[in-house]
């Protein structure tokens, strides 16, 4: 997959713990951990919206496209 999740970077920049973010946006810690490690098939706009609101950032700051050969 060429989409890399940069949620860890944003969490570090905002000095927020993943546990606190999960509680704030109403996602389970397990699901947030899967998202952080990129082990999900997709992200709902609803989740993206909540994360962007909580971390005051743009979706582009959370997701990055890396052109890699399969």
């Amino acid at each position: 997959m060429a989409i890399v999740v940069r949620l860890d970077v944003m969490l570090a920049l905002r000095k927020k713990r993943a546990k606190d973010l999960a509680a704030e946006i109403g996602l389970t810690e397990a699901n947030l951990s899967l998202l952080r490690t990129g082990k999900v098939k997709g992200v709902r706009f609803e989740t993206l919206d909540a994360i962007c609101k909580a971390l005051s950032c743009q979706p582009g700051a959370l997701l990055e496209f890396v052109d890699v050969e399969d």
Binding site: L32, L35, V40, K41, G42
Partner: peptide, 8 residues
């Protein structure tokens, strides 16, 4: 459902 569960 299993596909759906892989969306967060």
């Amino acid at each position: 459902k299993s596909d759906h569960d892989q969306f967060v």
